[in-house]
Amino acid sequence: MLSVDSLDVAYGEIRALKGVGLQVGRGEIVTILGNNGAGKTTTLKTISGLLQPLRGTITLEAESLVGVPPHEIVGRGVAHVPEGRRIFNRLTVRENLMMGAYPRRDAGVPADLERVVTLFPRLKERITQVAGTLSGGEQQMLAIGRALMANPRLLLLDEPSMGLAPVLVEQIFDTIADINRQGTTILLVEQNAAMALSIAHRGYVLETGAIALAGTATELADNPEVRRAYLGE
């Protein structure tokens, strides 16, 4: 579904990605593991159009995404839950969710709103509340729910576990697996490698801007390097 090849991205003089290539197949959960500064967020930002690559290709179902502005990439079916959630604090929960469906003109929006609040009942309870008053976990639910309102084929998730208590992290990851079972393909960037590998089908390890390892989730979880560097053994 998504194919990224020889991607080079730089911030000014600093080269953030060096020849990154990865594939995401329809229906998969693919995770990108790596330390801070390895280039995980940069990869997602480049796919969703927030950053322009120096060279390389990004294709979604045979259509190139390079040079397409971010607001049009959403229309192609890619929704991005950015690092730090980036919900609109001053908008209500409902307004946040409706912004997720902003470019849509089809009749499916109310049904998707229903689906999102079924997935995250907490959001239904707080639908008229200003989003800035939500707890961290609720904000993460809102960020994911908002992205789902675009009815995406591919969902990019950047560190959904960040700053959340372990019990909440499990809940969020269960929901991510649910969303995947309902048919959405997922590319998941995560520092919490154990959680990520527990729901992913395949994964890549990113080190200083380049892919160091690739394999199925089980292969990666059994790899001694991965166990030592990312699973804390």
Partner: peptide, 14 residues
Amino acid sequence: RAVAEDQAAASLMG
């Protein structure tokens, strides 16, 4: 209002 709060996030909404 969304653009006023966060332009990058708004662009990710389409």
